[in-house]
């Protein structure tokens, strides 16, 4: 299995996909950091407002300083989970698009093992992506913060409260992506279904069906994100973090399992 994951990693890094994904992620993160600062700007409070990083001040400070604001800044790349999801989808579907799956199955004829290798690879890649997002937030957000007179150590202080949940969520979405990809191996179809669900259908479902929010993947992931965050406001409508984690895992693994079973019977022609 280690050999398969190493092979998967070589496969992944020798295509443009992960680098393009990382590029998009960083770009989006940069924009989100910008938005955070612009919002603060428009909420009143000019630049250079005093305060040596004390989070007691309520308003009138031109940079994030409350616990929640700092956590938002650390987690500014959170929305990148969609990219982790797509990365998971692409890890599987690229093989079918370019027919490299023939070679892959010749190396690993027992197809569920191939899917398991990809699940592991996706989990690692998802974690890696979350870490890239966190680091870029700390660098981008931190530099700006310090430039505006804020405290970098106050920002660092919030990392333990944000990072574990965020990494967990990215891993869960990447796993879900592999599940979807092994169920729908056609790349275009898989991407359309994935984006269609997460951007449009899920929202409609949640607004139509009372209580659906906690059961849909985004709701489950949101709950999982509370691993360390403990945001009381949303927790009311969601499972607790480990229930959310299990539900997300269940989605990903059940899809992957069904996908593996279909793949096992499928003729690769």
């Amino acid at each position: 299995m280690i050999a398969i994951v190493r092979s998967e990693w070589l496969k992944l890094r020798t295509t443009a996909v992960p680098w393009v994904m990382a590029g998009i992620a960083l770009l989006i993160n940069g924009l989100l950091i910008l938005v955070i600062y612009l919002n603060h700007d428009s909420n009143g409070g000019g630049f250079g407002g005093g305060g040596s990083g004390s989070s007691a001040t309520i308003s009138g400070v031109g940079y994030p300083h409350t616990t929640q604001q700092l956590r938002n800044l650390v987690g500014s790349g959170f929305e990148g989970y969609l990219l982790a999801l797509l990365l998971g989808v692409l890890i599987v579907t690229t093989e079918f698009r370019h027919k490299t799956v023939t070679t892959t199955f010749l190396i690993t004829p027992v197809r569920p093992i191939m899917v398991a290798g990809k699940l592991l690879m996706a989990a690692i890649a998802g974690a890696g992506m979350a870490i890239i997002m966190l680091v870029s937030s700390l660098i981008g957000g931190g530099l700006t913060l310090v430039g505006l007179g804020g405290s970098f150590s106050a920002l660092l202080h919030q990392v333990p409260a944000v990072a574990p949940g965020m990494i967990l969520v990215f891993i869960l979405f990447a796993i879900l992506g592999v599940g979807i990809g092994s169920l729908i191996t056609n790349q275009v179809a898989a991407i359309v279904v994935t984006l269609g669900w997460f951007i449009i259908l899920e929202g409609i479902l949640v607004s139509l069906v009372h209580g659906a929010a906690k059961w849909v993947p985004t709701g489950a992931a949101e709950a999982a994100a509370n691993l360390t965050r403990n945001r009381g406001d949303v927790s009311l409508f969601l499972f607790n973090w480990w229930q959310g984690t299990l539900l997300m895992l269940a989605y990903g693994l059940v899809f992957a399992l069904v996908g593996s079973m279909i793949l096992t019977r499928r003729d690769i022609t």
């Binding site: 092979s7 070589l10 496969k11 023939t102």
Partner: peptide, 17 residues
Amino acid sequence: SFHPSRRAEDHLKMVAI
């Protein structure tokens, strides 16, 4: 059955690993 943007050597390494 090759990924077009993969280098020949990497394709073989991937299989070998």
